[in-house]
Amino acid sequence: MKNFIEVRNVFFKYGESEESSEEKYVLDGINLNIHKGEFVAAVGHNGSGKSTLAKHFNSIYLPTTGDVYVDGINTKDDERLFDIRKKVGLVLQNPDNQIVAGIVEDDVAFGCENLGIAPREIRERVYNALEAVGMYEYRKHSPEKLSGGQKQRVAIAGIIAMEPECIVLDEPTAMLDPQGRQEVISTVMKLNRELGITVILITHYMEEAVLADRVVMLNSGKIILEGTPKEVFSQVELLKKHRLDVPQATELIYQLRGCGYDLPPTVLNEEECVDALMQILKK
């Protein structure tokens, strides 16, 4: 499979002045490849470097040393900055602070307007993007009247309208209630499955991470675990050591396995858990 994003031996620290030389690296030697159409979740606690990494995918931050390539373009290449940002869109955590205009459709159009696209096409793209996130009927509303989940979907639509190949979401659900989280995650899943958009989801909710094709776990600026959700969540011990959440279903099976019961190594949701338990309880 073709690598869409390549992170090669990236180190990053804030500031380049002399005095900050002893400050520690926020990213400490990251190597990561992301394929086209993949859905990757990056997890880790606050300060693990996951948000800093997210901002490397579209040249908001540049590596202190090392390189990031997006579709073969080095993110340090100034000339092609807009090409990179057209390919990789970024959605931030706070739903209020990333909406620019006072009307939903105007905001979604903002990116396309910056790209100098013809008005007719902008309208088409804006409507398609709003349809894709299920916010079409709200196109004339003002953002402050929307719920958190709706605002976040508008922000996603603003990126989708630019027709990116990849969308990076930096803890998009951290400030939302369960319903808003559900709305955002199912929207993201839909974009990935139906439109084939590559998704990089930064989150600390494990129930979101289990939906991904691949989970990358960061700690102190390093990738410490990488694999399918099944592989990653089988490492309950390691997850707990790094104080990450383990779904209750996973943890229960893990504990029972510890007592010698014959159970599968990983279950990710309640259905799998009940199925597994039935095997031993029926006897």
Binding site: N94, Q98, V100, E113, N114, P119, M162
Partner: peptide, 22 residues
């Protein structure tokens, strides 16, 4: 945050900018 969000959406001042609503 807003500045980052605008950068992510290729904001570059008024140069070559088009508008959806003509």
């Amino acid at each position: 945050d807003l500045a980052t969000a605008m950068e992510c959406r290729c904001y570059n001042g008024g140069n070559n900018r088009t508008r959806m609503k003509v």
